[in-house]
Write a protein that binds this DNA or RNA. Structure first.
Lengths: 321, 321
DNA sequence: TTGTATGCGTTATCAC
DNA sequence: GTGATAACGCATACAA
């Protein structure tokens, strides 16, 4: 492996000059620059990233916290982050937490110890005081509405997305609407709940706690949802479902039991995943790949001031409403 | 950030001694070891990984090449790799190739330039001569049967898995059996094709090229499969399908068109993904998470001799046959 | 069993 | 414009 000193010798200049052309700094004559460039080409030189990192005091590593790596929602987010990271010569440190707070703290600790340059938390379990404590050690970026906090984020307005879906169902004549989520504690879930509550109040609909079904995350959870709906004395006529993955499960289960969709039960999913397109599921599109890219850029190129970035969502009308 | 020199002062020893206890080397008295340990605890010391890396000439980075990051098969593999990598303080560099050879070459180049310590190729596009050329620059690990090559691998015996599935269908009375794959050129696909050919010969069944449907990768491809089957003058009575994801798509489409499964069409998927369990799809189980872990260990702790590691598969009988 | 001194390959400071 | 040289923090050969 040829190094910067070898290059200097080959080009007949000093290491400083080599470093200058390597980093395209000013103050180097065209003549010497070309000599160095030639030497680089001839020797097939590549900088030793370890030395660069040590010298710069940076790791070029970005931590990514997700509850589940192999879940369609998060793997799509990771895809976006990874694509942008590669472009900027950053590497990923993937933390799968399973929503275990200790796992998330491990990631936060790595930030504190400067083992990573920044941390992206795609879905959070630790409380605000914890996050805010670690904020002083390095950039933390979230994927939820943080406008009331001093933490940067790229987020989707789940309140608006949910409301749009609800209004659409109302317009279609539905008055008994339920919804599925994974966990009720997350910010995104809370925003969805808030929209639901406001919607109920606005149209003076009755509130039925049964209509809110939690722990829905995978395709196979769709079956549980249909189970519950079938057991209700007064079942909903429409359901907003966690994600298209789960919505697809609901639709599949419903078919198996001769529940007609949308006649017996209308369904709206989220994310506009490929599966929603194939199964003609009406959905709220969330551009996850794009969000992943934004999260990365925000996580690395961050100023002192928190920066909030909202990504718009779109209702995609298909066959399940 | 306190460093090794600060520790030495605090403990009243030399940096060498500190380094020794840090790396649990022998030849350090219990007395001094404890002083150092105390200093470490007190100062909340963490080694600067950049310095460690530079000094050791290693990056502690492992490259992972996949065609698609957000595909259930590969994201599960990544999950296994990431889990094991984290345990060993390694970080991931994710390359999504989309089966573009240049992308794969980028990863290979990084290995050559010592930008990563090892490379795991989960699905390969480049030819053997290319792989073998880069083998001299660092450990490369594959996820396909490489027993006729000098490249290490953790692999599934797709020949055996396919044959098991075929024999099972034969036993159930099927004589017109087709199969779906993504691409025909991969080693794994070739092994499946070989099993199919041997099976056909063994039972003297007629070979119908129509029965082999390629480019099946996602749930939504299941619909195309059903389309094709319906258009055949002499359709197969059973289908081995790329993955459970695609199998689920086939089953869903079949339901939508009142094709009875398994009566009109029997289906066997692969991987035993959660979706297969939910939809009661008969499948060949492939332990992807476990394979991912093995791939990592193999990729990092590799001797000079190539090492081949076969992972067994199991037929899981459910309702689609 | 311990410590000194050197190297790892860069970047950055400063004098020229 | 240019070039010595000092960090950066750790591992290790070698001397003691």
């Amino acid at each position: 492996m040829t190094n910067i000193r070898d290059l200097a010798k080959m080009a007949g200049v000093s290491v400083t000059t080599v470093s200058r052309v390597l980093n395209s700094h000013p103050y180097v004559s065209e003549e010497k620059r070309e000599k160095v460039l030639a030497a680089i080409k001839e020797s097939n030189y590549k900088p030793n990233i370890n030395a660069v990192h040590l010298s710069m005091g940076k790791t070029f590593l970005i931590g990514v916290v997700v509850p589940f790596i192999d879940h369609p929602y998060f793997s799509r987010l990771i895809k976006g982050i990874a694509a942008e990271a590669l472009r900027h010569n950053y590497k990923l440190v993937l933390f799968q937490t399973n929503y275990d707070e200790d796992k998330e703290l491990e990631a936060l600790q790595m930030l504190k110890q400067k083992q990573i340059d920044g941390l992206i938390i795609c879905s959070r379990i630790s409380s605000w005081p914890i996050i805010e404590e670690y904020l002083s050690y390095g950039p933390i970026t979230l994927c939820e509405d943080t406008r009331d906090r001093k933490v940067s984020s790229t987020f989707v307005d789940h309140y608006q997305g949910f409301m749009t879906a609800l209004e659409y169902l109302y317009e279609k004549g539905h008055r008994k609407i339920g919804y599925c989520i994974y966990r009720s504690s997350g910010t995104n879930s809370k925003n969805r709940a808030l929209a639901y509550q406001h919607f109920i109040e606005k149209y003076q609909l009755s509130y039925n706690p049964e209509y809110i079904i939690s722990h829905c995350l995978h395709f196979e959870d769709g079956e549980k949802v249909v189970d519950k709906v079938q057991q209700m004395a007064n079942p909903p006529s429409a359901l907003l479902v966690t994600s298209d993955e789960v919505a697809a499960g609901v639709v599949t289960s419903a078919h198996n039991r001769n529940i007609s969709i949308p006649n017996d039960l209308a369904i709206i999913g989220f994310n506009n995943q490929p599966i929603a397109q194939m199964m003609h599921i009406t959905t709220i599109e969330i551009p996850l790949m794009e969000i992943g890219k934004k999260l990365f850029l925000q996580g690395i190129f961050q100023s002192d001031e928190p920066f909030y970035q909202e990504v718009p969502v779109t209702l995609i009308k298909r066959g399940t409403v």
